[in-house]
Simulated scan of single mutants.
Amino acid sequence: MTKLSVNINKIATLRNARGGDYPNVVQVAKDVQLFGAQGVTIHPRPDERHIRYQDAYDLKSVVTTEYNIEGNPIQKFMDMVLTIKPTQVTLVPDSVDAITSNAGWDTIKHKDFLMEVISDFKRNNIRTSIFVDPVINQIEGAAKTGTDRIELYTEEFAKQFALGNMTAIKPYVACAEKAHELGLGVNAGHDLSLDNIQFFKQNVPHLAEVSIGHALIAEAIYIGLQPTVEAYLKLLK
């Protein structure tokens, strides 16, 4: 079964809108695990516009499944991850002004930098994953950095799937096969939803984990958080 890691950034966005502590991200992390999610993901950004760095520390003691922290490895992020020691760190090359993640790493151009960052995390027994576009040479480049996994950036798949273009899955299938061949675990995330997750899961081999936040929280507005988590788990079996 592919594991579901629930990204709770949007819960923090809602909390921050009123300046208080409701909804409480720690409680939501507890709840999604109780509902069956096999992991919790957060993606703190330097401006702390949703998840705050303090949230990352507060969540450490309550995430009893897999704790995945995503982000651009600036020094503040590095220091936080090395202190918390989550299950997994996912390296994402977002620019400071990006609304959301919008590209994977150029693993060839940034090979030396990624190798240095990844070696620091692996010395501390933190599993590493690199956010990458579904391009074969980027998967090959990722393998040379020493990372444990790659996370396939799935926005283009989701966009094309919504338009009825089923062939958009092909590069993801090829990249997952190449990653497995090179000894890398395969994760995926970005714009995956209840509409497209089953098709993606059925077609992409070796899929270890998906990280889903925006769609899952939006869907939960209509059907509730527990039924939404349970629906994803059913489709990922």
Rank of each mutant, 00 (worst) to 15 (best):
L14Y: 06
R123S: 14
D58M: 11
N102H: 12
G141I: 06
P46L: 14
D120K: 15
Y53E: 07
S61N: 13
V81P: 04
D120N: 14
D191G: 01
K201G: 00
T100L: 00
L114C: 03
K159G: 00
D97Q: 13
N9V: 08
F131T: 03
T128C: 12
V229P: 06
P23D: 10
P171E: 06
V26H: 08
L4V: 11
K111P: 00
V28F: 11
L194M: 08
V173W: 07
F157I: 03
I99E: 13
E66G: 00
V26A: 10
D148Y: 07
A103C: 06
K76E: 14
K76Q: 13
M1I: 03
S101P: 06
H190I: 10
F113R: 03
G185V: 02
G183I: 06
C175D: 09
N72T: 09
S61L: 05
K10L: 11
T83H: 11
S129N: 04
T65F: 02
G104P: 02
K178A: 12
H180Y: 14
I139W: 06
G189Q: 07
A56Q: 01
T128H: 05
N137L: 01
E155A: 15
K85T: 02
N203H: 15
L192Y: 08
I221P: 01
S129H: 01
T145F: 06
V28P: 07
G71Y: 04
A142H: 04
D112H: 08
D94E: 15
I118E: 03
I74G: 01
Q88W: 10
G36M: 13
I139F: 07
G104C: 09
D195T: 12
N9K: 07
L194Y: 02
D112R: 09
I217C: 05
R149N: 15
V117I: 15
P134F: 10
T65M: 01
A215V: 03
L233W: 08
P205E: 05
N102M: 13
L14T: 13
I51E: 02
G183W: 08
Q75S: 11
D112K: 13
F121A: 04
I126R: 06
V40H: 04
V62R: 02
E230L: 03
L114W: 02
E156P: 00
G164L: 10
D21P: 00
G183S: 07
E140K: 15
A220T: 01
A142W: 06
V32Q: 07
G71T: 06
H206N: 15
L192Q: 05
L233P: 04
F131C: 09
A56I: 02
R49K: 14
S61T: 12
M78N: 04
F131M: 09
E116Q: 15
N68C: 04
E66D: 14
K201W: 02
A231V: 05
P44H: 11
G146W: 09
Q160D: 13
N137G: 00
A220Q: 01
M78A: 02
Q160Y: 11
D97C: 01
L184W: 05
T167C: 00
I51Q: 02
T107W: 11
T167M: 09
